[in-house]
């Protein structure tokens, strides 16, 4: 990290400024192509989404200016608002489970980190990160069906009474979809936390042991605080995954039963491409983008210092 810090002395500052002006404009040629793609395929569509959200438009005919009426409906129409609520509920499964369980597993693994088993496990538990979410959705809808492995297993355990079509039951569909997300994200979180743990100074633990601290005290007073940054990262990644979920739900429930698993991403897709209410879809899209930023920004800020 040792880097000459510009602007120490007045003379240095002048030299630096001169250098910057010559380099500066040439440097823009390096930035422009990237910026062009970004502007055309990201910023322009964002601006258009904002614009569309103020109109009523079926995507084909002429449009009508409706001001903020679409936003009004996003927050008053239970069907639309509930999709936002569902996305927030999904955070429990997509974030809380992988992070908490990941911490527990990583802490346990740390003690046998060098064993062969742990090395194999690193590869295996990473698999869900690599495969398309669509495939995860297909595999799990089959596992969670009324004749699927999950029910087979429960029956074996003598829990035949609780078996059901998990994705088709109002009470369990959202948690079931959440579990699919947890399955995908648990491996990533575990490995991230494990990597973070390997950076913790072993001397800290030795000192704690000498003080007679048990495994739990050790975990709470050393492991968790040292992993602040990694935990923050896990939370950011998983919260965004929850709010912007689409693939898994599109494949496994299409938002049903009823609207029990409808999320904003899927709702936008239906509104825009099947119901042709471009304005409504765009208003919901704006709300979703703002919601993601509102959730991600504080955590980003939080980790900023660690990122030099």
């Amino acid at each position: 990290m040792a880097r000459p810090i510009p602007g120490r002395s007045p003379r240095g500052r002048a030299a630096e400024a001169a250098a910057r002006s010559t380099r500066g404009w040439a440097g823009w040629l390096f930035v422009l192509p990237a910026l062009a793609f970004y502007v055309v395929f990201v910023l322009r569509p964002i601006a258009l989404t904002a614009q569309y959200s103020l109109y009523e438009w079926d995507g084909i005919g002429p449009s009508t200016w409706v001001g903020l009426a679409n936003y009004g409906r996003v927050f008053t129409d239970p069907e639309l608002f509930d999709s936002l609520v569902n996305a927030v509920k999904l955070i429990v499964f997509f974030s809380a489970i992988p992070v908490v369980l990941g911490l527990a597993i990583a802490a346990t693994i740390r003690r046998i980190a060098a064993s062969r088993l742990a090395l194999v496990a690193r590869t295996v538990i990473f698999l869900p990160q690599v495969i398309p979410l669509v495939a995860a959705g297909i595999a799990w809808s089959w596992l969670l069906s009324s004749t699927g492995v999950v029910n087979q297993f429960l029956t074996l355990l003598g829990l035949g009474r609780v078996t059901r079509a998990w994705l088709g039951d109002f009470a369990t569909a959202l948690p079931a979809v959440g579990m699919i997300g947890a399955w995908v994200l648990l491996g990533l979180c575990t490995l991230l936390l494990l990597a973070g743990m390997s950076k913790i100074d072993v001397a800290l633990y030795e000192a704690a042991r000498l003080d007679g601290a048990g495994a739990w005290r050790e975990f709470v007073s050393i492991t968790v605080p040292s992993l602040r940054q990694e935990i923050a990262v896990c939370v950011t990644v998983t919260v965004i995954a929850a709010l912007a979920s689409f693939d898994i739900i599109y494949i496994s429930t299409q938002g049903g039963p009823g609207n029990a698993t409808m999320v904003p991403g899927l709702q936008i897709y239906y509104l825009a491409f099947s119901e042709r209410q471009i304005g409504m879809a765009s208003a919901l899209a704006m709300v979703l983008m703002l919601l993601v930023i509102a959730c991600a920004l504080p955590i980003q800020w939080f980790t900023k210092d660690g990122n030099r």
Partner: peptide
């Protein structure tokens, strides 16, 4: 400002 310029560059959707 940049966003405003981008949006202003086009009329009402579908027009």
């Amino acid at each position: 400002i940049a966003m405003g310029l981008l949006a202003a560059a086009c009329g009402a959707p579908g027009s």
